[in-house]
C-alpha cells in the first residue's frame, strides 16, 4: 500500500484517484490522471469543454466504470465497496435526471429515505432545504413542470439531505438565480468549514477563485495544473497579480482569437 493510499485509508484524503483512465472506443476522455483531495478541502476542477471533467466526476461517483485506475472515496475503495462510498457522497450532476413525476418535496424525502433516514427526519430536513432554496411554494408541483434552475436546486437539496462527507458538484450554479446561488454558496462554505470535502467544477473562474482552496486543471484528459492559486501561478509562470482565468488560459494553451476575427 502506497503512502497516499494509507493516508486515504485513514481518511486524510477524501478522494484519491490513481492512474484514472477512461476510453470511449478510440477516444481517450481521461488519460491516467491522479487526484488527491484532502478532507474538508474545497477543490475546484477546471477545464475547457470536452476536457474530461464530467467523465472524471462520473467515475469518482461510480456512475461510469473507469477503463483503468483505482478510486478511493471517504476511505473506501469504490470498486470493492461501492455502497460504502455512495453512503458518504452527495452528487449534483451536470445533467439533472430526477424522477420527474414526483413532486419536489416527494423527491427530496424519497432521497433521504433511500439514504436510510427515518420518514419524520426526512420530512423535517426536506422542509428546511425547500425553504432555504426558495422552493417551498413549488414543493407540491411535479418536477417535470419545474424550470431547469428549480430542478437543479431540487437535485442539490437531495444531494445534501443525508449530510454527505464528500460532495461532487458539476456546474452547480448554472441556470440558478443569484439569490439561490448565494444560498448554495453559503451552504457549501459552511459544509467545507465543518470538514465536508467539496469537489466542484465550474466555468465561472471568479466563483472558483473565491471559493476553492485548491484547483486542478484538466485539459484533453490530462491534469495540467494542480495546487493552490500561488502554486498554479508558479507553474504557469504567470505574474503575481494574474487571475485564475489568466492562469487557466496559459495552462490550457488557449490562443488569442483576435487575429482570427480580424474581419469582425
Amino acid at each position: 500500500m502506497s503512502e497516499a493510499e494509507a493516508r486515504a485509508e485513514t481518511g486524510a484524503y477524501s478522494i484519491l484517484a490513481t492512474g484514472l483512465t477512461k476510453r470511449f472506443g478510440e477516444v481517450v476522455a481521461v488519460d491516467r490522471i491522479d487526484l488527491r483531495v484532502g478532507e474538508g478541502e474545497f477543490f475546484g476542477f477546471l477545464g475547457p469543454n470536452g476536457a474530461g471533467k464530467t467523465t472524471t466526476i462520473r467515475m469518482l461517483c461510480g456512475l461510469l466504470r473507469p477503463t483503468e485506475g483505482t478510486i478511493r472515496v471517504a476511505g473506501h475503495d469504490l470498486d470493492r465497496e461501492p455502497l460504502e462510498v455512495k453512503r458518504r457522497i452527495g452528487v449534483l450532476p451536470e445533467e439533472i435526471s430526477l424522477y420527474e413525476r414526483l413532486s419536489g418535496e416527494e423527491f427530496i424525502v424519497f432521497s433521504a429515505r433511500m439514504h436510510g433516514l427515518q420518514l419524520d427526519e426526512a420530512r423535517s430536513r426536506a422542509t428546511d432545504l425547500l425553504e432555504l432554496l426558495e422552493l417551498t411554494e413549488a414543493k407540491d408541483r411535479l418536477i417535470v413542470d419545474y424550470s431547469m434552475g428549480m430542478k437543479k436546486k431540487t437535485a442539490f437539496a437531495a444531494a445534501l439531505i443525508h449530510q454527505p462527507k464528500v460532495m461532487f458538484l458539476d456546474e452547480p450554479f448554472g441556470g440558478i438565480d443569484p439569490i439561490s446561488v448565494r444560498a448554495i454558496r453559503n451552504v457549501l462554505q459552511h459544509l467545507a468549514g465543518r470538514g465536508t470535502t467539496i469537489f466542484f467544477t465550474s466555468h465561472v473562474m471568479e466563483v472558483v477563485e473565491r471559493l476553492c482552496t485548491r484547483v486542478a486543471i484538466i485539459h484533453e484528459g490530462r491534469i495540467v495544473g494542480d495546487g493552490a492559486l500561488a502554486e498554479l501561478r508558479a507553474k504557469a509562470q504567470a505574474g503575481s497579480d494574474s487571475t485564475l482565468e489568466d492562469i487557466f488560459m496559459k495552462l490550457v494553451d488557449a490562443r488569442g482569437d483576435e487575429e482570427l476575427l480580424s474581419w469582425l
Binding site: 455502497l83 460504502e84 462510498v85 455512495k86 452528487v91 433511500m114
Partner: peptide, 12 residues
Amino acid sequence: GAASATLFLFPS
C-alpha cells in the same frame, strides 16, 4: 431512463 443514475447513487 436517465433517472437510473440517481437511483444507483443511493447507498441502499
